[in-house]
């Protein structure tokens, strides 16, 4: 382990908070999805750091599964953005705050 595990955790926490801020603050659907990507990468950083800390391969294996989860999430989410843009003519989250009662 080249750096203390706490520093890796600190970097990952800052990265996660940046992604959370992007998800909460930005209004475009694309930027919300990018915030989710940043948070998932912070989780991957924690897993690889833990794998190096405990000298186990399990953390890296879980990162592979996380990448598969991310790929499927992005595929469905971007298809939904495309669908919403074609059906409603907008890709801004504020335009979708009403339900058909």
């Amino acid at each position: 382990m080249i750096v203390p595990f706490g520093h890796v955790l600190a970097i990952a926490v800052i990265l996660f908070v940046l992604g959370l801020t992007c998800t909460v603050v930005r209004r475009q659907l694309i930027m919300i999805l990018i915030g989710v990507e940043i948070m998932l990468n912070a989780a991957a950083l924690v897993l690889v750091g833990a794998s190096a800390h405990w000298q186990q391969v399990d953390g890296q294996l879980f990162v592979v599964l996380l990448m598969a989860v991310t790929a499927s999430e992005v595929a469905v989410a971007l298809a939904m953005v495309f669908y919403l843009r074609h059906r409603q003519g907008s890709a801004v989250a504020d335009d979708f705050n009403r339900m058909h009662g």
Binding site: I2, V8, L45, V48, G49, A52, Q60, V63, V64
Partner: peptide, 9 residues
Amino acid sequence: FYLLGAPLI
């Protein structure tokens, strides 16, 4: 990731 010993990742 590479520096943490995960070249494949």
